[in-house]
Every structure is written in structure tokens, then in C-alpha cells.
Design a protein around this nucleic acid. Sequence first.
DNA 1: ATGAAAGCGCTAACAA
DNA 2: TTGTTAGCGCTTTCAT
Lengths: 357, 357
Amino acid sequence: MKNTVRKSVRRKGAAITIDDVAVLAKVSPMTVSRVMNGHSKVRDATRERVMEAVRELGYIPNLAASSLAAAQDARIALIYTNPSGGYLRELLLGALRGAARTAAQLVIDNWDELDVGAERVAARALANSVAGVILPPPLCESKVVIEELVNAGVPVVAIAAGRFNHDISSVRIDDFIASKEVTEHLLRMGHKRIAFIKGHPNQTASTRRYEGYQAALKDAGIPLDPALVQQGYFTYRSGLDTVERLLSLRQPPTAIFASNDDMAAAAISVAHRRGLDVPRDLSIMGFDDTSAATTVWPELSTVRQPIASMADSAIDILLRSIRRKDNDTKVVVDHVVAHQLIKRDSVAPPVARKTRG
Amino acid sequence: MKNTVRKSVRRKGAAITIDDVAVLAKVSPMTVSRVMNGHSKVRDATRERVMEAVRELGYIPNLAASSLAAAQDARIALIYTNPSGGYLRELLLGALRGAARTAAQLVIDNWDELDVGAERVAARALANSVAGVILPPPLCESKVVIEELVNAGVPVVAIAAGRFNHDISSVRIDDFIASKEVTEHLLRMGHKRIAFIKGHPNQTASTRRYEGYQAALKDAGIPLDPALVQQGYFTYRSGLDTVERLLSLRQPPTAIFASNDDMAAAAISVAHRRGLDVPRDLSIMGFDDTSAATTVWPELSTVRQPIASMADSAIDILLRSIRRKDNDTKVVVDHVVAHQLIKRDSVAPPVARKTRG
DNA sequence: ATGAAAGCGCTAACAA
DNA sequence: TTGTTAGCGCTTTCAT
């Protein structure tokens, strides 16, 4: 019949704290803290004892307390525009995971309706309220936003920006190589007339992907046919329009490489409406491997860009430079991660066609 | 030339704290706290002064500190399986917003690969590590998961469960009414042969939607044709198969009502492949209004289920019952929110058809 | 209506 | 290698 020791006037929950563990393991709370955080300077025997107590009590550290104490509670913003399809979902999932892992506080915001002036104002306000910012395209290429943020000394990481901009850190794949590989894959299947649907012109990644396509053709000794290159905008709608045009050509392509999955999905739709079989009559490839790629029939061959883990990494990078903030060295890194060619069902060798005339 | 008062050995950032505001506003930190939290007992003049200081300093409260002090730092889990399309994205966005608003700590997890035994184990572990759980379908109908969680006394809220289960709270729309309205919309347009694609049989919402369809037909005096009712599974793929069957009927439907947007999108795809124009030759309606609805052409008429704000509400409900945990009264609520019929381009009156024979 | 004191659970710095 | 002390920024309780 032991009395509950009321340590204080307050104390709400009966949650297990570091002190409980410390008592059971017969060490100081500090040692428990060290064990939990993987600090090396703890004797193995001690560590074992602590872990045992942790397990027995089902102890889970209070993130709020630890961030507060460690002054590590960084507020990180993820600002997006154009919530294009599965892209945002991946982004969120990754950022969330990173935030949970590091006890960072994630602030998500949408700046869809902002003009340049409003963007500047918003960026300035943002700079005052967060310790770091994650910028997916197309925001990661907004001069005013970056300028405001950088001037305010807020570390920024651009996700999937297409290229490294030395002002801010970036996490990206090599869009050029990836795109080249896609084209080469199509080439290897025997395609000669490969159309390309460009992405939104305001994004560098679009350019890089186009360059990859060009490079592959050049390597293969195939001249680029301007009629086969169409300007898209990463939207499903723009895919619809451009593919219409492509398939109305007197000499239509046997394969279409769209700069993202949404436009590739649109290509399938148009092909079907015209009575074409995919991939028999027309091969189609996308880019990104978002959920759109597997929500169409046939499923899209595409390039996997690991958005989620890229967002996760972005948080690490941000946190590193936030904590180093005392030093005067500005840390800007360019983190290039591996992409992966995903072969599904939207690509096949071209069938021999009756030639006109 | 005043000296910086180094309050302590530590102190990392130069973040603005409640004390800074208090000094500027010439009040105690406590009053600032009250103003920030909207407590009523503050004189208007005082409140004004504080707000002024807050604005001038750009003060933003430290969530970690406030949750710690208020002992309000609840860890809330959102467990999902079947990351079906835009659904998860909405869910995340809403939950995130709610978590940020309330300083709850969100834990996201995927239980896709778990069998019943593993689910039970996972649920038990979960019960020990979080203060509340949000369960979207189909998990919100898992007997073992709910049982473990409820037995452990962890408050749970089911999102979009289709009906209220008195063991746990729920946030949902009225699937029956919504579905009835969809069918009535189709009926009003003049359709008589309306096919229905059921959702996954393991989800009550599927049943409710089917019942709404039946009720509308009955009210209109139209007998239900079993051939027009197909079993789907909420996946794009299942939509493909069922619509194939539907359109191969000797007397095909003039309209298809799919239990979610993914299957409706599949319907469009199949229609196009068969050379049918949507909506001229075939009207199609979806359900949920996820991103899939606007990532197809023509854009889908559908029912908007406000998943994001439902997730947001779920956090409130959870928090309320977590804080009330001291009391012995268990709080279980059924929160039904409004849905909305969204008319876009996939529905039109049926064209007169040549009758056979 | 406002303030003072105390402490939420944890960890950085320093000491031993 | 381990413990002690002080305090992160905020809100509770209690006093005024």
C-alpha cells in the first residue's frame, strides 16, 4: 500500500518518464538520456540495464521535452503550389517521416494564388517564422522567394529542382541522365519516332529532361524531328492536347515520352479514344512514378524519383545547417540521389507499319 | 550600448520568447500567454497592447514548450492501408493541419502487409505508444484492431467508416444520402439504366452507398436490374474489369455510378477504348472527389467527401477525450459532416438509342 | 484582471 | 564513464 509520491502540484498524465527508467535501472536520468540518444560513452553493461528498464516500462521519450531541452525544436516549412497528383502525397509522407524522426515541427502551406508581389511578402513573413524551408518545384525556382529567404539567412532546400543553384541546398535526381535512360530504353525497343512532351517551361527539371532526350537521340544518330516535340505543362489537360496533336501527325510517333506521369496518363487516354492499343500501337513512358503511373491501364513504365525519401533527406540537411547556425560558415549542399527505371506495361517494340504512298 | 543579458549558460537561438513580448508590452508573461490562448479574462486595452507587441516582434509561440507545460503533447497515430490515390493525400493534409493547430504529435504508419495476427500485435504495441488513434477504412472496421485499442483504453476515431460503431468515435459523411443523391441526379438527367459498381465488400461505406443507390431507384419506381450491379474493390483495376462486363451487356447501361473516383476513372478509360464518348454515349459518376476526379478527361461529376477537414476534426475529437481521460466517462461521438454533389463534365442526358429487334 | 512561483520532461555543460 | 546542476519556453496553480 504505497503512497503515490506527488512530486508537484501539477502532473497530469501518468506517462512514464526518464526518471522512472533511471530509478529502475539505478542510474541517473542523464545516463538514460545518453542511452536513448545513442551517445557512445556508456558502458555496455549500463546500457543493457537501461534498455532493459526501458523495455520493461515501455518508456517512450517525450519529444516535446527533448526538443525543448536540446533547443532543437526547429520549425520547418514546406511550401507548395500546384498540388500535382501523387507528387504532393509523396512529399508529405517523406517530410512527415523526417519531422517525426527529428522532432522538427513541420509547417505546411500552399501558395497557389500568389502573384510575385504577394510571394515576396509571404516569403518575408515566412523567414521570420521558421528556421528552414523546403521548396518543391516550381517554387524552388522563384527568384523573389529564394532571395528573401536567403537574405534573411534562412536555410532553404530545393527538392527536385533539376539543377543545383549555389544559393540554396538541393536534393534531386539527375534528370538529364534519367531522361536519357528512358529514351535509350525506347530506342532499344526499336523505336525510331519517339515523341517528347516537355514539362512546364518554368521548371529547370523540364529542360534537363528535354536535354536528356536530345542527347540519347544524338548518340543513336537519330535526327530530332521538331514536330515530335511538344510543349506540355505537367498537367493532365496539357497532355491531352499535345498528344492529340502528336497523333494527328501524318507520320505519328510510335512512342511518346512524357515529362511526367500525369501527361503520360493523358496520352494513354487519348490513344484509347482513338482506338489505339497501348503498347501495341503506341508505347508510352512517364516520369516520376507517382500514383498516377499505376492508376491507369496499362500501368506506366516510368522513372522512379524517390520524392518521399528526398523530402526526408531535406529535413536532415536543413536541421544540420540550422544547428550550425552559430558558426558563420554557410552550408549549402547538393544531394543527388539515385533514380530507377521502372518497366511496366506501357512499352513494347513498335509494329511494322504500312508506309504511306 | 546595453549589454546582452545572458540569462543562462545555454540559450541557442535568438528566438523571440514570451518574455520578450511581456517586457515590450509591460505585462507579465502570464498575461501574454492568456492573450495568445484567447482566455477571456484580459482587459481589452491590455490585450491590444500585447497583440501590438506580438506583431512588432513577430512572436510565434514555441509549440514544444507550450505542449510540455500544458501536458498537452499527445501522440496521435494515423494508420493506413491501401494508400488509394488522392485519398491518402487528403487524409495527411488534414491530419497535419490538425496536428499543427493543436501541437499534437502525429505518427503516421502503414500496415499494408499485416495479417490478422500481426495486426493484433501491432495494435497492442500501438496502444502502448500513443494517446489516440485515427483509423481510415478499411482499418476502422478491423475487429481485432479496435478491440485491442478499446481494451487498452485508447480513444479511437474512425474516418469515413460508413456508419457509427458505438465502441469508437467516428467522423463521416452520410454515405447513404450522398449515394442516393448521386443516383437521383442521374435519374433526373433521364437515365433509366444506371449501373452501379460496388466498393470493397470489407467496408461498410460500400454497403451504405449501394443502399442509397437502391433507395433512389425504388423511389423512382425503377426495378433493380442485377446485371447492372457489379462488385468492385475501389481499385482502378477492378473498375476496368467491371466496366468491361457492363459494357458487354446486350443492353448496356446509359450511366455508370462507381463507388469511388478511381473506379469511375477506369470507366472512362474503358469507354474510350470502346469508342464511346463520355458523357454523350455514357454518363459516369464517381464518389469522394479525390484528385483522380480531375485528372481524367472529361472531369468527373462526383460527391465531395471532405476528407481533409474530417481528419482535422478527428484530431480535435481525440484530443478532447485524451484530456478528459482523468474522468471516467468515456466520450464517444458520431460526427457527421456535410457532403456535396459536384457537377462536372462526365454526365449528360442519355441519347435516344436504337432499340434492338 | 493580473502576477509570482513552480515545474512539465528532457538535455547541455560542467564536475567528479 | 557517470552524475549534478540549471534551465529550455511555456502554462499551471494560487495569490493579489
